[in-house]
Amino acid sequence: MNLFGHPFGISPGIVPLFALVLTIGAYLIGQSIQKCVNKAIANPVLIAVLIIGITLRVCHMTYDSYFSGAQFIHFLLGPATVALAIPLARSLDHMRRGFLPMVAALFSGSIIGLASGYGVVRILGGSQVIALSMVPHSLTTPIAIGVSQNIGGIPSLSAVLAIAGGILVAIGVDAILGWMNIEDPAVRGLAAGVAGSGVGASRVIPQHPVSAAFAGVAIGLNGFITAVLAPVFIGLLKYFVHR
């Protein structure tokens, strides 16, 4: 039944409120499930995406209608990212001691991220535009959209890939770093922030203040480095391939 088109359905005037409550409620349900099962696979963002997607499908609600209410939460992504400066300020001494290794890791992670994203798609037979959309997959969503627009990708697809990549990192980061016997909170935060941006970093941020600080640096600088290097990488690629 189309609840949003039916004369006895939900009034268009309260659709934004419904979308806002749905978004917050879906995430809270995801958090509750994760606490109950205590498994990384029960990622709150993944669960919330599934709940919201199913609800929109059942209610025949368009994404534009949903976003009219959810855009307030979307706006809060900016302040939430900026808030990572708080643990950053508290860990400045720690960062100064490891400044050069941190910068080297950031550049390495950014280059490998954009090159592997493009290369894997092309090796598997994907089209050029899909490969370009995959380049910013490890960035926070707003930056991924901007980078995708700049290099000729599909911004909406890049946003989906960035969120999906972040969820995968959040699910697997503890297992992978544990398998590698990496316990240093700085390394864990940097790895999660570079590979999975905000969604991936959300897994390690509550574990230690230093992890939160390094994750915040990784999210911001990885976005900046990739935004600068991606057009250069694509330009060099076109030059050597088509020369």
Rank of each mutant, 00 (worst) to 15 (best):
M61Y: 15
G165F: 01
L236V: 15
N43L: 02
K39S: 12
V135M: 09
I145T: 04
V232F: 14
L236S: 08
L190E: 01
M102G: 11
A42C: 09
F4N: 08
P12K: 09
A105L: 13
A159K: 06
G189N: 05
V15T: 15
I10S: 05
S202D: 01
H94Q: 14
V120Q: 03
P155H: 10
F18D: 09
A19L: 06
A164R: 02
I176R: 07
V37Y: 07
V49H: 04
M61G: 13
G117E: 00
L20N: 00
A159N: 07
V160M: 12
A159L: 14
S156V: 15
H94K: 09
S116F: 01
I54P: 08
I73N: 03
V37D: 02
F67S: 11
L76R: 10
H60V: 12
V58C: 15
V45R: 02
A26S: 14
Y118I: 08
I10T: 12
A175L: 13
H137C: 14
L229A: 15
L56D: 03
G235P: 12
T81I: 10
L92G: 01
A192M: 00
A80M: 01
F224T: 12
A104R: 11
Y118E: 01
H208E: 07
I73H: 00
G117T: 07
G235Y: 06
F214L: 03
L17C: 01
K238H: 14
I51R: 04
Q128E: 12
A83W: 04
R90L: 07
